[in-house]
C-alpha cells in the first residue's frame, strides 16, 4: 500500500460521491483531453491536403462515416461544454459570483457551491446536448 494512501486516479475521477461541481470538474478534464486528441487528429487530417486531391478524398472517406459523424458530434458537445464551463470557471476563479464572505450559520451551505454555479453547469451540459443535435442535423442535412 502506498505510504500516502492517496485516493489515486480512481478517486479523482469518481464523481459520484460529491455534488454536480465534482462532475463538472471531471467532465472538464475529459472534454479537455478529448478536444486535444481531436485537435491533433484534425491537424493530421488537414495535412493530407498537401498530398493532393486523392489523398484528401481518401481521408474524407475515412472520416465521413457514421462513427466519424458521431465522433464529430461528440467533439461539438465537448467543445460547447468545455467553453461554457470554462467561462464559468474563469469568472468564479477571479472571485466573482459567490456573494460576500460572512459568518456561516449551521447547517452550513457553502456559498461557493451556489445555485448560480450549479445552473451554469447544467446550462453548459444542456447547450452541449443541443449543439450535438444541431451538429448531427447539419452533417445529415436534416
Amino acid at each position: 500500500m502506498e505510504k500516502d494512501r492517496k485516493e489515486g486516479i480512481r478517486g479523482m475521477a469518481n464523481p459520484g460521491r460529491y455534488g454536480i461541481e465534482r462532475v463538472a470538474y471531471w467532465l472538464m478534464r475529459i472534454t479537455g483531453l478529448g478536444l486535444l486528441a481531436y485537435f491533433i487528429g484534425h491537424i493530421y487530417e488537414t495535412s493530407s491536403l498537401l498530398d493532393g486531391k486523392a489523398a484528401w478524398n481518401s481521408m474524407l472517406e475515412l472520416t465521413q462515416t457514421t462513427e466519424g459523424h458521431i465522433f464529430l458530434a461528440l467533439v461539438i458537445g465537448m467543445c460547447v461544454f468545455h467553453t461554457g464551463n470554462g467561462i464559468r470557471l474563469m469568472i468564479a476563479e477571479a472571485g466573482f459570483g459567490f456573494g460576500k464572505a460572512r459568518r456561516p450559520d449551521y447547517p452550513y451551505t457553502p456559498s461557493s457551491l451556489n445555485m448560480k454555479n450549479k445552473l451554469c453547469i447544467y446550462v453548459s451540459i444542456g447547450l452541449a446536448a443541443l449543439a450535438m443535435m444541431y451538429g448531427l442535423g447539419v452533417m445529415y442535412d436534416v
Binding site: I43, T46, S47, L49, L50, G52
Partner: peptide, 18 residues
C-alpha cells in the same frame, strides 16, 4: 512540433504549393 506541423499545412496551402 504540433504548431510547426500545422503551420506547414497552412503556409503551403495558402501559398498554393499543393
Amino acid at each position: 512540433v504540433l504548431i510547426a506541423y500545422g503551420s506547414r499545412t497552412i503556409i503551403m496551402a495558402s501559398m498554393g504549393m499543393v
